[in-house]
Design a protein around this nucleic acid. Structure first.
Length: 273
DNA sequence: AACCTTCGCAACCGCAAGGAT
DNA sequence: CATCCTTGCGGTTGCGAAGGT
């Protein structure tokens, strides 16, 4: 499977790699290690572009790559990470050891995206598609627009959580403050539950509550709803456009912020189930 | 059996970010 | 500070395999 091999204007090979080329590339890297990709082909004796060698190594030849069918657990993970990160395949791949971003992207585009569509889920927003007579739109499964003044959705809640995670990890907002803010607006509480927020060295309980909105009992006590209700209390936590945070300096300062965000959000997901 | 469509996946392309000069 | 170069990423394409008619 793959593309046939051909030579470009520079006399360099393109298309499918042969097993002999693979062997040469692996042998070279094993002996000399990774270095300048541009000059690597010449040094290794390959009629290839450095970019092609890099791609072949990262997506196919490097040790530890898991190939073959994705397990249901892996598929669930991809869908969940995609709902949080969007088409940031490299970021998703970082959360799934042994799978390449290319593999994940391919599987999403060829399989998972279509599966979601068949299930009536918008693959971009991860929300149920509501077929309207006048105009098509998507709605949160548990919240209607009137139930929350802002354009609340799982995506925006993810963004809020992201900001929350960034705030916690940067100690911009202490846990005490977050705790106080959440507790300060427990509207129509009917039941209490507990969330644990881990902050690397310390753990604290954040008490949440169930809420009743527009006659529809929200049967969860996710951090999402709580944050939705308390958004206004976070003076600088206004709803932002998708992935604003990912563009911010604070987010790119350290990968562990992503880990923290995912950790916190997974706790939120558990509450949803 | 032949043809057509869909699937799966390797690899290419263009662009952007960041480092080097 | 500007320009060039390298690397990394995401979107897309090409093509054999598999499945359907």
């Amino acid at each position: 499977m793959g593309r046939t091999t051909w030579l470009d204007d520079d006399g360099l090979k393109k298309g499918e790699w042969t097993s002999e080329e693979d062997r040469i590339l692996v042998a070279y890297i094993n002996e000399y290690g990774l270095g300048d990709w541009r000059t690597l082909p010449k040094r290794a004796g390959l009629q290839r572009y450095g970019k092609s060698c890099r791609l072949r190594w990262l997506n196919y030849l490097r040790p530890g790559i898991k190939r073959g069918k994705f397990t249901p657990q892996e598929e669930d993970d991809i869908i969940r990470f995609h709902s949080l990160l969007g088409n940031r395949w490299a970021a998703i791949a970082k959360q799934m050891p042994n799978r390449t971003d290319n593999d994940i992207k391919n599987h999403w585009n060829s399989c998972l995206k279509k599966r979601l569509v068949r299930s009536g889920i918008d693959p971009m927003t991860h929300e149920p598609v509501v077929k309207a007579t006048s105009s098509s739109t998507t709605l949160s499964p548990t919240l209607t627009p009137s139930s929350c003044s802002s354009s609340f959705s799982s995506t925006s809640s993810a963004r809020l959580l992201n900001r929350l995670a960034a705030g916690i990890s940067s100690r911009k907002h202490g846990l005490d403050r977050i705790k106080n803010v959440i507790l300060s607006k427990p509207r129509q509480a009917v039941e209490e539950d507990k969330l644990m927020i881990s902050n690397n060295e310390e753990e604290e309980e954040v008490t949440g509550c169930f809420m009743e909105i527009d006659d529809n009992l929200i049967s969860t006590t996710s951090l999402d709803e709580l944050l939705c209700e308390s958004t206004t209390a976070f003076d600088d936590y206004s709803l932002v456009e998708p992935y604003d945070l990912y563009q911010s300096d604070i987010y790119h300062e350290a990968d562990d912020q992503l880990d923290l965000f995912l950790e916190i959000h997974s706790l939120g997901q558990e509450d949803l189930s």
